[in-house]
Design a protein around this nucleic acid. Structure first.
Lengths: 184, 184
DNA sequence: TACTTTAAGTTTCATGTAGCAACCTATTTT
DNA sequence: AAAATAGGTTGCTACATGAAACTTAAAGTA
């Protein structure tokens, strides 16, 4: 019943463990995707996903508990319950799309269908991207990890002297990213 | 040993199940994040993440098997093994950042540290975004799901008559998204 | 050389969680 | 009133997780 399992320890201050606490379970993202795709009812999820009844029940309850789905009893048919995404649930869209695109890129040749498109021109969306504060698309090469206290501080000529040093006030630039990228 | 568990059924053709097959397990994303942060050795992961030895061993093996990490024995100290991200692993960055940002937004007040910044100006990155093919930032309101055969076809005045109908050649626009957004 | 430590695993065993099938309860529908 | 539908719950089995002890190989140290 209660989550007795110890929560994922944070390597440092980070939202990732929190996200995984909620969405890290085996079926959570599939249910989310089904919701995005317009499924709202228990039996719909059940037959579309091929998930076990009790697990679906449990996952839906957890998603509701965590504010990702809303649980609305239907007024017209009082047997039915409508599960609908909340704003918090919608905000998982970028994460879901990014995962999906990654799976698409590296998985067995799946030609996705239906396709997620820009409504304006009905052309497929581009890759999910990390943007800078002013909207440039950033690749792994453009990213660095810095201590909060050093935000906006131009590194005074110092590359991180040793990777992984994680020293206070030290610029931890993701050197390994760059090397691996250029080496490969 | 072998993955006997039935693979996640695809609701339709979609890369998500493939991604979850690889990254959907409890510690996978935390290990990935640790890798991004410059950890490379077994005992480093072990002490930083607080994961059990056997599970770490198993997860690392799986990540290697799936081509997300490379397993390089160190030449200088032949006890040591270096686990390093492959390009395929780096490509999970948007998904990881999106998840992390979501956790950040909705989780308990965590002030993340270290911060992921744009190297050019050392200012924090913006939100991970879904872009159109020509680079516009798309919100949930701008997205629609269409059948592959209808790509680029201007919907002839037809909104999807009933959500969730999923009919062939039918425009499945994510009406529910729009309604929920505007209603909330 | 022997003695200890470190790195990266494996094994064992208790516990937790997933999945299947059957059952249950309240509503419709016929 | 009987049957079907929607959304669950319960009991059981198999698999996954986690803590602690054990293993193996290589390095450091007296």
């Amino acid at each position: 019943m209660g989550d007795i399992r110890e929560p994922l320890r944070e390597l440092t201050e980070c939202g990732l463990p929190q996200a995984l606490e909620v969405m890290g379970e085996r079926w959570s993202f599939m249910i989310l995707r089904a919701s995005f795709n317009g499924l709202h009812h228990f039996e719909e999820f059940l037959s579309e996903l091929g998930i076990a009844r009790n697990i679906l029940s449990n996952r839906l309850a957890k998603l509701v508990e965590n504010g990702i789905l809303r649980r609305d009893p239907c007024p017209d048919d009082r047997r039915k319950i409508e599960y609908r995404l909340t704003d918090k649930g919608f905000d998982l869209l970028p994460a879901m799309v990014a995962l999906r695109q990654w799976g698409q890129k590296y998985g067995a040749e799946v030609t996705e269908n239906p396709v997620l498109v820009d409504e304006r021109d009905r052309l497929p969306i581009g890759p999910t991207s990390i943007l800078s504060h002013d909207g440039r698309i950033l690749g792994p090469q453009d990213l660095a990890l810095v201590e909060r206290s050093d935000l906006g501080v131009r590194a005074d000529g110092s590359q991180a002297d040793q990777e992984g040093s994680l020293g206070l006030g030290e610029v931890i630039d993701i050197e390994s990213l760059r090397r691996a990228k250029s080496a490969a």
